[in-house]
Structures are given as structure tokens and as C-alpha cells.
């Protein structure tokens, strides 16, 4: 996409707001439509747009494979660890009431932590899938194998 000047300029303008919007959806999910699943996807879309218009090589320099692969696990671990913390604080697994002295505030913090975990895993999985598909040479030559 080297020669598409308009696409390149528009992408440069759009990527930032998309990331910001992803964060908004992530942390405003308690009050309006949104949450971890949607935010993760929107966040991944911003990186995909960058990867499609500029090259995949540039994107891989920015977000290397190993970071993406570790983020997949980190999100799930964050979710599970929230459950374990409530377990050690004397509640049931994923019972957020014990996280704070006021029960409903504990619920708020628990929901934020869990949604963050969901968002990170979904973001990383979507990006990893994009890497896997886009990173393959389009027509495989027999000599390459």
C-alpha cells in the first residue's frame, strides 16, 4: 500500500482515536454499552488497520509476536487471579463483595479487573489470529518447503 497516499494519511489520523475509543469502551462498560469483549476487538482493529495500510513488518516491529502471545495468557490469568484473590479474602470464587469494605464498591473493582482481563485476552487473540493469517506468504512455492 506504499502508493496510497490518502489511505496512509487517513490511517495516521484514525489510529489514535480508535485506540482512545477502545479504552473508553473498556472502562465505560459499566455505565453504557460496552465492555471487555468489544473493547478488545476495537483495540485490535486499530492495530490491524495499521498493519494493513503500512506493512505487517512495521506492525511486528511495534508489537512483536512474543508480546502478543504472552498477553493472551496474561488476560486469562488476570481473570483467574481475581477469582483467587476473592477466594483468599474469604469469599467464594469470583465473589467480589469481599474486595472492599463496602460490598458494592468491591463489585465495581471486581468487574473492572475482570473486564480488563477479558479485554486483554480478546485483543491479543484477535491480533495473534491476524498475524497468523497475514504472516503467511500468499502463494507457497514448493522450493520454499
Amino acid at each position: 500500500m506504499e502508493h496510497h497516499l490518502i489511505l496512509r494519511v487517513v490511517t495516521k489520523i484514525l489510529v489514535g482515536p480508535i485506540l482512545l475509543y477502545g479504552l473508553y469502551v473498556q472502562f465505560h462498560g459499566d455505565f453504557g454499552p460496552g465492555g471487555g469483549f468489544q473493547a478488545g476487538v476495537i483495540f485490535a482493529v486499530a492495530f490491524m488497520l495499521y498493519g494493513i495500510v503500512f506493512s505487517l513488518r512495521e506492525l511486528r516491529k511495534l508489537v512483536p509476536d512474543w508480546i502478543v502471545h504472552q498477553l493472551i495468557a496474561i488476560g486469562l490469568l488476570l481473570y483467574t487471579c481475581t477469582g483467587l484473590v476473592t477466594l483468599f479474602l474469604g469469599g467464594n470464587f469470583l465473589d467480589y463483595n469481599v474486595l472492599w469494605s463496602v460490598a458494592y464498591k468491591g463489585q465495581h473493582y471486581g468487574i473492572i479487573a475482570v473486564e480488563l482481563g477479558v479485554g486483554i485476552t480478546v485483543f491479543a487473540v484477535m491480533l495473534a489470529i491476524y498475524y497468523a493469517f497475514a504472516g503467511r506468504p500468499p502463494q507457497l512455492d514448493d522450493k520454499d518447503w
Partner: peptide, 27 residues
């Protein structure tokens, strides 16, 4: 829970076990 969006409350609090399973499937 005192969260206006009921879908988020059900997703992340009432049925968080369910969501943990879904995240594991995505993983």
C-alpha cells in the same frame, strides 16, 4: 451492584463463571 448497565453486571458479576469459560474458549 449499583451499575447502570445490567448486561455488564450479569456478564462480569452474576455469571462471571460463565464468562471465565468463554474467555478460556477464546484463549
Amino acid at each position: 451492584i449499583k451499575v447502570p448497565n445490567i448486561v455488564t453486571a450479569v456478564l462480569a458479576s452474576f455469571r462471571s463463571w460463565d464468562t471465565l469459560g468463554e474467555v478460556t474458549v477464546v484463549f
